[in-house]
Amino acid sequence: MAYYLGLVQLIGIHTLLGLSAYVLMLTGQLSLGQAGFFAIGAYSAGILTVIFELPVLPALLAGALIAAFFAFLVGFPALRVKGLMLVVATIAFSEFVRLFFFNLSWRVPRGDISVGPDSTNGFREIRYFVANGWSAFEITAFVWIFVILVMALLWWADRSRAGAVLRAVGEDELAAQSVGINLTAVKVAAMTAGGFIAGIGGALYAHTATYIDHLTFTVLLATFAIAYPILGGLSSVFGTLVAVIFIQGVLVEGLRFLGDWRNIVFGLLIIAAMNLKPSGLFDAPTARMLKRAVGLDGRG
């Protein structure tokens, strides 16, 4: 059971990571820097529970706010660049964050050992959950409360004017601007929201893994962050969830029996998926088909 719950936790955390990139993609911004915000959330929350001995909830919220703050700061210069420039700029940001944590050593004595981030040696002992007797089920529930909250919020926003505004900017900036949408506000808000969501994900990750080091937050993780919404499609938040289940559940865990061939199949399946369903696995037609299948067909 612990194994499945662990997997469900991981899927939840990666869904948050994917959603943080999803929000940005709605406005037409592609960021390969979400691993950086995820790292900021992870280290900040870890430092708060380990060094300052805060309970996990305030630590997590503080971590998310700190990540959001940095995302807000990144949002302004990022306005100047688009497309590939933004991709590279965000990679650079996230690598910078990673190198910062690579150099960060902040150790405080705790009993006969010392705790805290220890540069290359990593940040161990983020054991708030197990040390306080949380069961695997409780940890999973805790993770998913945030996943569901964020998904519900985004789903609701998507149905409201806010979603229309985000998508309008993503579809055609010029047109959006001409109907009076403030591009700066929308883009910076999306970046900040993305940072907040990634920060929550990172904070949860640090506490479920109990150990983080700079190598966790490489470009590879940022690649996964954008892979989820792209594979899942941008038609709704559920696309990202479907893609996370597809990648983490099916490709990474489900194909484990393939042994070391798994990673080769992994790349091929991504290529195949993008050729067969370029708008994502959970694109608009699929969503309609599913709705029809379960008898929920509205206007589509």
């Binding site: 612990a2 194994y3 662990g6 997997l7 991981l10 893994a209 150990y211 966790t216 990474v252 865990e253 484990r256 042994g259 070391d260 798994r262 990673n263």
Partner: peptide
């Protein structure tokens, strides 16, 4: 099992 050089996968295999 293959757990790459990856913390998530090592944890996941241990749990499995």
């Amino acid at each position: 099992y293959d757990s790459a050089c990856n913390a998530d996968q090592a944890i996941s295999v241990a749990r499995k």
